[in-house]
């Protein structure tokens, strides 16, 4: 049992390497260890692996490459990789919906505890993570003699920069002829917008229940376009049907760390604030001067968002803000 294994985010072969994988590699490098291997599960991985050759400090790429793995389920993946994973001192996955699905199942198969959502590496076996929606931090140690399994809290980490790299050997892992079929992929409904990804966007424009309707929510889109920002939403806005669920920011939605977070008509429930704690600059616009969001905002403006947004668009142009 030695070395660090990173199980990469499942992704299409023609897309750039997932930010989630690059951030997980940053954690792996922080931990150090005898060697770093990256395991990829998917279909037609060759183009992806070619681009991944630029990664530095990786010993081997392990692959489970099969057309039947184009949409891998946790039920399938955990069983498939368990024998390989058993050989490592550390097994890491990104804290995406994929990693949070696969890794606890793998931990169950290996009968070992797991550390979820690591925000800081204090030592090779000691980690800091948040509890109670991030309101309290806890430092935990994985005792000697058992593997360290952890997921990475993406908002707390920077992606590794591609290095010179090159010459990383690819080792295909054997795949059984018959795969378990108790869980079968049926469909993925993706939001068709071409806006930046909420999880990794530099700027996020976010709306709450005060938007009042799905149509009004579209107001945010003009501003998001102007700022080349992703769109987010509070739980209240999602529950009210103004925005799709994958835009939800907060404890039970996405935890994000953009350079700029603009909150319109979001009161600032503690569960929402959890999701934006790591944003560099938080701007709050709300009619209610007592709204809790103002307590965490770097810049607050009391006002009606329906007046502020058009004015803001004009003012950004007037002051020559960069797009």
């Amino acid at each position: 049992m030695e070395g660090v294994l990173v199980i990469a985010e499942a992704q299409a072969g023609d897309a750039p390497i997932s930010e989630a994988t690059l951030k997980t590699l940053a954690v792996a490098q922080k931990i150090g260890g005898a060697a770093l291997d990256v395991l990829w599960v998917g279909s037609d991985l060759a183009p992806l692996l070619a681009r991944a050759q630029a990664l530095a400090k990786v010993r081997t790429f392990l692959t489970f490459d099969d057309p039947r793995l184009a949409h891998p389920t946790a039920t399938l993946v955990a069983g498939l990789v368990a024998e390989r994973a058993r050989r490592y001192a550390h097994v890491l996955m990104p804290g995406t919906s994929y990693g949070r699905d696969v890794l606890p199942r793998l931990a169950g198969l290996l009968k070992t505890p797991m550390v979820s959502d690591v925000l800081e590496v204090m030592g090779a076996r000691t980690f800091k993570r948040g509890i109670y929606a991030g309101n309290i931090h806890t430092v935990v140690t994985v005792p000697d003699g058992m593997p360290v399994l952890l997921t990475v809290r993406l908002a707390s980490w920077q992606a590794v920069a591609p290095g010179a790299g090159g010459g990383i050997p690819v080792e295909p892992c054997p795949i059984p002829e018959t795969l378990p079929e108790t869980a079968r992929f049926v469909a993925l409904a993706v939001d068709p917008s071409d806006r930046p990804d909420l999880q990794s966007a530099r700027r996020v424009v976010s709306g709450g229940r005060a938007l009042g309707s799905r149509e009004n929510f579209a107001l945010l889109e003009r501003l998001a376009e102007r700022l080349h920002a992703a769109i987010g939403a509070s739980r209240a806005a999602v529950d009210a049907g103004y925005a799709p669920n994958d835009l939800q920011v907060g404890q039970t939605g996405k935890i994000i760390a953009p350079e700029l977070y603009l909150a319109f008509g979001i009161s600032g429930a503690i569960q929402h604030l959890t999701g934006i704690r790591d944003a560099r600059t938080i701007v709050a616009v709300n009619k209610d001067p007592e709204a809790p969001i103002f307590k965490v905002a770097d810049i607050g403006l009391v006002g009606d968002l329906f007046e502020v947004i058009p004015e803001l668009l004009a003012e950004l142009d007037r002051q020559g803000a960069e797009p």
Binding site: S97, Y98, R184, L188, P244, N245
Partner: peptide, 12 residues
Amino acid sequence: EVDHGLETLALD
């Protein structure tokens, strides 16, 4: 509810 939308699975 997954990061990029809604995924449907059929499970025994």
